[in-house]
Design a binder for these strands. Structure first.
Lengths: 213, 213
DNA sequence: TGGTTAGATGAAGGAAGCTTCAGGTTAGGA
DNA sequence: TCCTAACCTGAAGCTTCCTTCATCTAACCA
């Protein structure tokens, strides 16, 4: 159970020269590769280092332990998605709820599916390693952005935007996960995305006082 | 990556006398307790055995390895939920979509929240140990039941019930997970359940050709 | 060009925990 | 009551990895 302190000291040492930042990048990238190829169970620090073309010692120069390494990889991966979603949320301000829902869902799913293998591999990581903290951090960040967007909707809301955002997040996470765990995600992608957009918009309409039941 | 064979030999030895079935029960129960109390990271076979009041040797008489133990615990836990949902699906046959949606969501969430701690602890297990296989098995089983229910709905469907079931599952899983990971699940329970019912029913209405956008 | 700091190396220490197995105990039938 | 099969025990073997650190090399600067 890693504590708060750990995440403060997270990078043991900051890369200064060019070659070291190259090492850090290589290590992070190797982590993902090893994770996808051999799975979390058999991911060892030695293996990651080898794959990155450096020695274990080097790895431990930048990451205090295995956990911090995995966490860094997880954070990097989520950062990408979070940024994309944030951008959309800002773009959609002032639009209709329908436009918002459609854009949000599409973007989220698109980015989640891109590097789908990585996403799946990282699911298992977030259970260990206190990855939950990283995930939650991103979740909160996105929720704030989604709420801000919803508040600018053309339609006046009859539902708490906080609750709406939470629902949207839960729903998107659930469906994207289901998609990623499907036998052939790419094949199901289109129809599930379309369907999620339908559901989301049906919900958003109700949230604006639209014909409920 | 455990293979198919493993799940066939799963229980190393079947309990025959009463005392041995008692041992197996105790071990399974202890597994959940240890999981909840100290977490997956620090769950050791020795600790589980101790908690169950038996020796490690006894544990290994019924479970070939640590993985099979966790898998058995996961299966037992999901079986409970699956049974509850199946019963509801049968009860709701022939009803309106709205009744179905409401009953399905309510039941699922209710059972997921009961023993919430266990559910959360087991999430992490299902990432290891090839728990995905167990989860998928249950998912397929439930999907079949949900589809069967939907087909008997009073309203004629304009959407593929297979797709509908998948969406419902994804959405319920996502929201229940979000709920369980909340700071205070019990506090959020009511409003999120209500909201999920709203969303689900809005969606189901569209699936029956109801006012789309 | 010499000195200083940053960066890299990888063998080996050490901890942890899964799993076995040889030997004991209990239950149930003949 | 005795015998066999079921059941239980837990110390110790063994493997696997994480992590360190003494040592070496490369880069930068005066």
């Amino acid at each position: 159970m890693p504590a708060a302190l750990e995440s403060v000291i997270e990078p043991r040492k900051l890369p200064i020269q060019a070659r070291s930042t190259a090492s850090v990048d290589a290590i992070l990238q190797a982590t993902l590769q090893v994770l996808v190829q051999v799975g979390k169970e058999r991911l060892t620090t030695t293996r990651v280092a080898a794959r990155a073309g450096v020695s274990v010692g080097t790895l431990y120069q930048y990451f205090p332990n295995k956990g911090s390494l995995l966490r860094a990889a997880l954070r990097q991966h989520m950062e990408e998605i979070a940024t994309a979603v944030e951008r959309v949320c800002e773009e959609q301000r002032g639009q209709s709820l329908e436009a918002m829902g459609t854009a949000l869902v599409s973007t989220f799913l698109k980015w989640k599916m891109k590097d789908g293998k990585e996403s799946v591999a990282l699911y298992s990581v977030s259970s260990d390693v206190d990855g939950a903290a990283v995930v939650q951090e991103m979740t909160i960040r996105l929720k704030r952005e989604i709420v801000a967007m919803l508040k600018t909707a053309r339609e006046p809301l009859t539902t708490d935007p906080d609750l709406m955002a939470e629902m949207l997040q839960g729903v998107m996470a659930g469906v994207s996960r289901k998609l990623l765990e499907a036998a052939n995600p790419a094949a199901e992608f289109e129809r599930m995305q379309r369907e999620l957009v339908v559901m989301t918009n049906a919900y958003l309409k109700v949230c604006a006082g639209g014909s409920a039941q």
